Simulated scan of single mutants.
Amino acid sequence: MPEQTPLTLVEMWTDGACKGNPGPGGWGAWMRSGERERELCGGEATTTNNRMELTAVIEGLRALTRPCAVTLHVDSTYVMHGMTRWLPGWKRNGWVTGAKAPVKNKDLWQALDAEVRRHEVAWVWVKGHAGDPGNERADALANRGVEVARGAAAAV
């Protein structure tokens, strides 16, 4: 049996921002592995905060070119609970909530589920705007994404 190469360890912080809900929104992801760092951000002209929180995690994981062991720091209880509590039930029940309503943002939850399956992910919730350096950096990137979205909307 061939020896497996150990997974690369990655720490990632993600955040979403929205100015109005719905309104222009942005997402940001900051990751580091050893001495390497990477920043990502983007935005949409009309979106919601929850969609941007989900997009930040999806895009951060999507940017990893091979399977990794990821410690993923999020300040969104929506994302945290969705991935650690609700997702198995949604999938089992055909993407319907316990209240028999369609799961909101199903497209993004399905994309996130696919990305998470590529990696070993440990979920860590952090309090937003409470001084966690990685969270503050992800928040700044998400707000940069809002400005990108506003600029793109103004150019149309």
Rank of each mutant, 00 (worst) to 15 (best):
R51G: 03
G43F: 04
T46G: 01
T65D: 15
G42P: 01
A69P: 02
G43L: 09
R38N: 02
R62A: 15
E59I: 00
L54I: 11
L40C: 02
E44F: 00
L64R: 07
E53N: 13
C41S: 14
I58W: 05
P67C: 06
L40I: 06
R36S: 12
T71M: 07
E39Y: 00
I58F: 03
R62W: 02
G34C: 08
G43H: 10
P67S: 15
E35H: 13
R62D: 13
M52L: 08
M52H: 08
V57P: 06
C68W: 07
C68V: 10
M52R: 11
T71V: 14
C41Q: 10
L61C: 04
T46D: 14
V70N: 10
A63R: 11
T65W: 00
T47K: 05
P67M: 07
R62Y: 01
E39A: 07
M52N: 12
G43A: 08
T46A: 05
C41D: 05
G34Y: 08
V70E: 12
V70H: 06
T46C: 09
E37Q: 14
E39H: 03
V70C: 08
V57F: 02
E39F: 00
T48M: 10
C68S: 15
E53T: 12
V70Y: 06
A45V: 04
G42E: 05
T48G: 10
R51T: 06
A69I: 02
P67T: 11
I58K: 10
N49D: 12
V57R: 04
T71F: 01
T65P: 02
V57Y: 01
R32V: 01
E37L: 00
R66Y: 02
V70R: 11
C41F: 10
C68P: 09
T55Q: 14
R51N: 07
G60L: 04
T65G: 15
C68M: 08
R51W: 03
T55W: 01
L72P: 11
L40P: 01
E53C: 09
